[in-house]
Design a binder for these strands. Structure first.
Lengths: 348, 348
DNA sequence: AGAGAGAATGTGATCGATAACATTACCTAT
DNA sequence: ATAGGTAATGTTATCGATCACATTCTCTCT
């Protein structure tokens, strides 16, 4: 329903949506009272409240979040900075963040980081100084963006697991994929493999990637040979390319991959090299992306609760914004090894 | 850099980011002049402009988009309404939308639709009356949201292809997956298959899904038997379940699937039923999601340019918002059949 | 009866920015 | 010299909402 003008200026009537002034006039109260009603504030009688809500429904009034924010209302919007949302990890984390934020009444912005996003760029991606931000910082673009945020920005970030000697930041949150990689490696060793090779996802920092570290941890603890990690990317193709030379070596019987897409590429390269999976070669992925259970062979992989992590990340930010009232940060599941068809004992 | 106060009220100094008033004071001009500089308006001397830009850089001033919008500046924000962003079609479309919008200087909001999102919900997801919106309406939740938007909302939508007798809306855009399904069906027939079965994705409307329609078009035109379409969902599991009974019938030699995940499930069910792919059964997917080339067997599928569609959708919205200045709507690629290992002639 | 406290409501200022219009100075043409 | 037009800048109002404080009325206690 369109109505005209508002109280302070009636010399140029224009058609637009109902504002708080329109509601106030029709309900016969001040706009401050309407504000109290829509924000659940005290000092409003039940009769007045009911009358105002009735008028709100009749006029189809919708609050203007921009004006609320500008006038100093509570922070109710957040921008998510993230890299490629088509990658399972980022997509699932974003899904958790968006759901939790929306449920808490926040509006959610998204801004995708490119490889070459510059420092000056980052602040300009925010709607206003002081905008709340969540960063999905699983790769170096995310980490760079996190560092480039101005000091006035309330932020929470989902990051790659910190190294044990890394800086402690209470607003960062992660999944322990180092321990998960160690566990997956130990599983392969327990099947009888002499050692395990590793195709790595790129690190988000200059430090050794934590999944790589966990793989090395387990091999070191077992006194097994420690091969050079094979650098991969994020895609099946990069996994395929990473192992083509390695697979000529028949003594290679087990490969752990930094994500499921890498595993898919590795399995294809193995088939082309005439290696049977898991008879000749066991392949283990990471993340348990949705198609994994239906591959041929179905993929042994590590399930990571990215959605849970995203929800928890928002919970952390919410506590940062409103320590008194925000609910407890929700828990997220620990990594879990999911054994399927692609892994088994080494050939006799 | 934090500075205090602003011109009209200096009796309660507070620390916050630089505002347009701070820039104006330091540069020795009015805030209107600063506004002219940052918006590239006329009536600013080169010397004044340079001075203002210098002060902006020194103070680290960042415009407040909320205030800009409230004060009547040009629309520079858009909210994307979409269903499950982990599905390839929606994720890729979103990626195209976000990239195009960001590049054009828009801030992008995202709001994920749940199955039970109600009509009253939709308007409340927008930041203000009149907010620009893009809807990814490939499923029924998206279509319902599109219908529920208030009349004052400038909107562009990526939709399932319209039926030929459907309503003509200049602000809707789609990929011709009806023609693509017909083409894929004809391809399978040309391999020698007597007929083609079809596992359907859910329709976004009460009309026959357009991919289903295209499959039927091609079978009808070739005078081939027309099997009942098998209702599937969006996931591998639903594809797996959809065909378990069908695969007992050895005369079934070709299955077209409404998306790649369905194809993955179908292929798994085929293997469990002892059907060789493509020796006994050809399987064709839809969308060419990134893992398709690396599956075992690699998947024959129809490539759809969702990213291009997303970019074009933003282009359409931009023209709706600013007919004089917005660039031409970018073209997007036509669907393309990608033949890989999963399809071949029927068994002799 | 009078004082004090609290409930309920309203007024004015503010937030950061742009639109609309006003003002001033300078240049050109007659 | 005067008039007209334009460039450049500034002032005021406005956008929709909330904060901070003021005002009024009612109830309870002494």
């Amino acid at each position: 329903m369109e109505v005209t003008g508002h109280m302070p200026a009636q010399d140029a009537p224009r058609t637009r949506s109902a504002s708080i002034w329109d509601v106030a006039r029709v309900a016969g109260v001040s706009q401050q009272t309407v504000s109290r009603v829509i924000n659940g504030k005290a000092r409003v009688s039940e009769a007045t409240r009911a009358r105002v809500l009735q008028v709100i429904a009749e006029l189809g009034y919708r609050p203007n979040r921009l004006a609320q924010a500008l006038a100093g209302g509570p922070v109710r919007s957040v921008t998510v900075l993230t890299s490629d949302t088509a990658l399972y990890g980022a997509a699932a984390t974003l899904r958790g963040m968006e759901e939790a934020a929306r449920t808490a009444g926040f509006s959610v912005g998204i801004s995708v980081l490119e490889r070459n996003s510059g420092q000056a760029d980052i602040a300009l991606r925010l709607n206003r100084p002081g905008e709340a931000v969540m960063v999905i910082a699983f790769d170096d673009a995310g980490v760079r963006a996190l560092r480039a945020l101005p000091a006035d920005v309330p932020v929470a970030a989902a990051v790659e697991r910190r190294p044990d000697d890394g800086p402690d930041d209470p607003w960062q949150i992660w999944l322990d994929d180092r321990a998960a990689a160690a566990h997956a490696t130990r599983y392969l060793l327990s099947l009888g493999h002499q050692t395990v090779h590793y195709v790595a996802i790129p690190s988000s920092t200059s430090a050794l990637p934590q999944r790589t570290q966990g793989w090395q941890d387990a091999l070191g603890a077992a006194g097994r040979p420690l091969p050079e990690p094979l650098p991969g990317g994020w895609s099946p193709r990069s996994g395929y390319l990473a192992v083509r030379s390695l697979l000529a070596d028949r003594s290679v019987t087990a490969i752990l991959c930094g994500n499921d897409d890498l595993a898919l590429g590795v399995m294809r390269a193995a088939r082309e090299a005439g290696r049977d999976i898991p008879g000749d070669l066991s392949v283990v992925g990471f993340d348990d992306s949705p198609p994994s259970a239906y591959l041929n062979p179905s993929l042994t992989t590590v399930r990571l609760d990215f959605e849970g992590l995203g929800r928890a990340c928002f919970g952390l930010l919410h506590r940062r914004l409103d320590p008194q009232n925000a609910p407890a940060v929700p828990a997220w599941s620990e990594p879990e090894l999911i054994v399927r068809e692609s892994s088994g004992p080494p050939p006799a």
